[in-house]
Design a protein around this nucleic acid. Structure first.
Lengths: 192, 192
DNA sequence: AGTATATGTATACCCGGTATACTCATCACG
DNA sequence: CGTGATGAGTATACCGGGTATACATATACT
């Protein structure tokens, strides 16, 4: 939903055309999340279909403009008013990977953690380097960068935390390794 | 890609059928990311199409089993070996929202930040409550929960950081404000 | 002149997320 | 005993986001 509302926020500042929306979206988020142009046009189509934006004619250069409608403004307002739900957080591939790794025999979780840690640390360094270069007046880009930094730092801390946990488990298991078999759900008949 | 590989990881431990895969996937991630059954079947179809799994017959109760293939094992191994890319991080709706909010006139960013902060704090409390209840031997679920906690904490810290940044900007923009809006006292922490 | 690059619109395709249809078995209840 | 709720189980429809690509024009470089 972030693209839809992001475009609405931009259109709230005046009519725009597709390519322009992409440029502005990316300059706001500092090219962190490169926005495929195709998504702009498909999203504009859906917004138009839902009555949140409306075509606003073409200029002499052939740019197809859109403007926000009143329902669109209401939708935008609602987006800003309601918090982003963190009760159903988006799937985190890394967390899933480790959750799977703890039970899959034959793979070394320590190596997985270390590889990820190094990778995330590199990303973190890239972010901090970008931050020193960021224009001082570009508040949006700075905030986005700092969000990325905070989350990357949290990830590194979590990875370290995983390592100590896993080490503790390994120590407990070493004396008397116990492997639990996965129990499939109760089987009841399923034949049609 | 996490579903695809998650299913491969489960199938690596022996043939399974669709419904069973959903149950095990959810028990691993502790029901954080409820997995719609439909996705299991469509994903299994794609995995079959790509030769990473193969049908493994039905049992007497009509369960349609799948098993992992050699290419499937290679794919799984590659997934574990390569770190999750944090150079192209997934779109963060909250970061986008604030990046847009700083430029949209007529909306109070402070309110947005406060609303989100309260919401994220509530989610954080839910997580810590769940953590006290988590079975001690359920390592996967614990790790996932701690990942969520670490990220929620990072989000709260980032929101506080945004507030101070925005306050500083406001001060620069309005050097001599007649009346300052009183800022309610910050409550920090609230951790386990 | 030809080629690369930027601007600009649009469509095809894949994957993830959600809802729903449909069947069969078990269990509770009046 | 019948009926209805619930759970197990498979499957499909639909939507939105992500990526690639087609296609056209203008500018710039060689």
């Amino acid at each position: 939903m972030s693209i839809k509302h992001g475009l609405l926020a931009l259109l709230d500042q005046g009519p725009r055309y597709g390519y322009q929306l992409r440029s502005e979206f990316e300059s706001r988020t500092g090219s962190t999340w490169p926005l495929n142009v195709g998504q702009v046009y498909t999203t504009l189509g859906r917004l138009d279909r839902d009555g949140l934006v409306a075509p606003d004619g073409e200029d002499d250069e052939g740019h197809v403009f859109y403007r926000i409608t009143e329902p669109g403004r209401a939708e935008l307002r609602a987006w800003f008013d309601a918090p982003v739900s963190r009760t159903n957080p988006p799937r985190d591939e890394l967390a899933i990977k480790l959750a799977m790794a703890v039970a899959v025999p034959g793979i070394d979780i320590g190596t997985v953690v270390q590889g990820q840690r190094a990778h995330t640390l590199r990303a973190l360094q890239d972010y901090t380097r970008l931050k020193t270069r960021a224009a001082e007046d570009d508040m949006a880009w700075q905030l986005v960068l700092e969000s990325l930094i905070f989350h990357a730092e949290a990830e590194v801390r979590w990875l370290d935390h995983c390592e100590t946990r896993l080490a503790r488990r390994a120590a407990e298991r070493a004396p008397a390794p116990a492997v639990e078999q996965p129990v499939p759900p109760r089987r009841r008949g399923a034949r049609r």
